[in-house]
């Protein structure tokens, strides 16, 4: 649940982080793919806490491959409802995915730990 906190921290402190030449703020989340736009290379992921839901918009760099069970997949392999674990960082244009791992699908569940 600190994930959302960190997302916000990412949004609020980029200037300070950049000024100190520190690594860009980053964090991870786990949620369900809401939309995928392979052409624009964006993914929207639904996450949240209880009934306070949020959608996190991520840009996906061209070189990034989605992983699933150790295999590399193209972005087009992601489908709405896929459960993904994403690490990401802040850039001036928004949140950028560092890694995207497909860990299951909402209809199948994906274990207890978030």
């Amino acid at each position: 649940m600190t994930r959302i906190a960190l997302i916000v921290a990412c949004l609020l402190v980029p200037a300070a982080a950049g000024a100190q030449q520190a690594p860009p703020p980053h964090d991870s989340l786990r949620g369900a793919v809401r939309t995928v736009d392979p052409r624009a290379r964006t993914v929207a992921v639904t996450t949240g806490v209880g009934m306070a839901l949020r959608v996190v918009q991520l840009r996906v760099p061209t070189e990034l491959r989605v992983s699933a069970g150790g295999a590399a997949l193209p972005l087009t392999a992601l489908q709405p409802g896929d459960i993904v674990r994403v690490s990401f960082g802040w850039r001036p244009a928004g949140l950028v995915a560092y890694t995207i791992e497909r860990v299951g699908h909402m209809t199948d569940g994906a274990g207890r730990s978030p």
Partner: peptide, 11 residues
């Protein structure tokens, strides 16, 4: 199930 795959129960 919640969006991360965990079993839901409240609400």
């Amino acid at each position: 199930r919640f969006f991360d795959g965990r079993l839901g129960r409240f609400g």
